[in-house]
Design a protein around this nucleic acid. Structure first.
Lengths: 217, 217
DNA sequence: TTGTACGCTGAACTGGCGTTCAATATAATT
DNA sequence: AATTATATTGAACGCCAGTTCAGCGTACAA
C-alpha cells in the first residue's frame, strides 16, 4: 500500500533497527538489503529510497550502534572509590559485565572492527571510538602516574590508557572465541594481582565481600 | 593445456599460497575462487577439483596460516632471563615486534578470528590456537605465582596466562585500527610499570640500554 | 475537487558468485 | 602402440546480490 505514511526519521530508525537485528543474528556478512526490508516489513526499494546504497545503510547502522552503546560511563559508585588503581579495576569489571549482558552487540561491534581494517570509513569511526575509550581512562591514568611517579617513570597517560583498554579488548577477544569456558572472575583476579596491591589487605577484603557476579561470558 | 602435470600436493600448496596472497590483499571477504585461480595461474575448475568447495579451501588456508605462523617460540635469549616477570615482558615484546614485521598475516589472522564468531569450524581451530597461546604462557605464569604467592592469592596460572594473552591481543586489536599512531614502545613501558618493578632499578637500566626497535606498527 | 509532491512498491536488470561437467591433453601402465 | 587413469580446461548453469525505475496510492495545498 504505497502512499505517504511514516515520517522520514521514523522510517529510517525503523529500518536501522531491523538492520541491527539482521546483523546481530547473521553478522555483517549476512546483512542484505532484502533481509533488512523483510525484517522491517517494507519493500526492498524503500530501504534504498532512504539510504541510497547498502554501504550507507551499514554506516548508519554503525553510527547507531556507537550512539546507543553506553560505554565507559563512570557512575557514582565508581567515582567514590578512593584509589585510582582500584577505580580502574572497577571500570574493567563494569566493562566485562557488559560482555555477558550484551553479547550480540559486542559481537557486532567486533564485526565492524574487523571490517574497519579494510574499510577506511569504518576505520575512521572506530578510531574515534577507540580514542574516546582511551580518553575515558586518561584522567584515571594520570592519577595513577601521579600516585606512583617512580614506578611509572617515562610512562605517559596515553600509554597507560592503552594498556587499560587492552585489558578490556583482550578479554573480549578471548571470550568471543571461547564463550563457554573463559572465566572472567579469574581474569579479574589475575589482573588485580598483576596491577599490584597498592593498599594490600584492604582491597582483598573488599573483593571477597562483594563477589563477582558472572563467572563466564 | 590439460593433462597430468604437477603432483597433488604441489598443486594444493600452490593454490593455497595464491589464496593467501588474495586474502592478505583483499581480506576473506574479497576471496573468490576465480581470483585465487587467476593468482595461481590455473583455471577455476582446478581449484575446486583440488578443494571440492570454497569453504574447504578457506579451512585449508587457515590451517596453512596457523602452521606457518611461528608463534610464541621461546628462544634462548628469553629463556636465559632470570625473573619470570621480565621474561613475560620479553615475550610480549617479541610478539609485538611481529605486529610490525608481518602486518598482512596478523590482519588475515584477525579476519579469521572475526569469522570464527559465526563459523563453528573456524572457531574450533581458533580456540585451539588460543589454548596453545595460553599454554605457552603457563609455565611462566606458574613461576610468577610461585615467586609471589601473597600477591596472587586465589589466582590460577590459567587466569594469569589469559591476562598475558590480553596484553598481546589487546595491543594487536588497537594497533590494527590505529596503525599509524599506536606507540608500541609506550605500550610496553606502561605495561612494565603496571606489572610492577620486582627488581627495581636493574630492569629499568636494561630497558634503557636496549631501546625498542619499532615505535609504531 | 483537483493537482501535485512524496512515500512506497516490486518486478526487472545486471553482474558476480560457487559450482558442474563434457571434452581434452598428458602421464603411467600394459 | 594401445589403454587407462588422472589432471586440467572453460563454458554453462543457477542463484542471489545491489540497484533501478515506472507506476501507484496517499496526504496536503490550492
Amino acid at each position: 500500500m504505497p502512499g505517504r505514511h511514516a515520517a522520514e526519521s521514523v522510517r529510517r530508525s525503523q529500518i536501522i533497527k531491523a538492520a541491527y537485528h539482521v546483523a546481530a543474528a547473521r553478522g555483517l556478512g549476512g546483512l542484505t538489503v532484502r533481509r533488512v526490508a523483510a525484517k522491517a516489513g517494507v519493500s526492498t526499494g524503500l530501504v534504498l529510497f532512504h539510504f541510497e546504497t547498502k554501504e550507507q545503510l551499514i554506516i548508519a547502522l554503525l553510527d547507531w550502534v556507537l550512539e546507543t552503546t553506553t560505554v565507559l560511563h563512570i557512575g557514582d559508585e565508581i567515582a567514590r572509590i578512593a584509589s585510582p588503581l582500584d577505580r580502574l579495576l572497577a571500570l574493567l569489571q563494569q566493562e566485562m559485565d557488559r560482555l555477558s549482558s550484551e553479547p550480540d552487540r559486542i559481537r557486532l561491534f567486533f564485526d565492524f572492527w574487523a571490517r574497519g581494517i579494510r574499510h577506511p570509513g569504518i576505520r575512521a569511526k572506530m578510531w574515534r571510538e577507540l580514542a574516546r575509550y582511551r580518553d575515558a581512562f586518561r584522567p584515571m591514568a594520570e592519577e595513577v602516574l601521579r600516585a606512583a611517579p617512580d614506578r611509572f617513570r617515562g610512562v605517559t597517560a596515553e600509554g597507560l590508557a592503552a594498556v587499560a583498554v587492552s585489558f578490556i579488548k583482550g578479554c573480549a577477544v578471548q571470550s568471543m572465541i571461547d564463550p563457554q569456558r573463559f572465566d572472567i572472575a579469574q581474569y579479574l583476579a589475575a589482573t588485580n594481582g598483576l596491577v599490584g596491591q597498592l593498599e594490600g589487605a584492604s582491597r582483598a577484603r573488599r573483593l571477597r565481600r562483594a563477589p563477582l557476579r558472572s563467572r563466564t561470558v
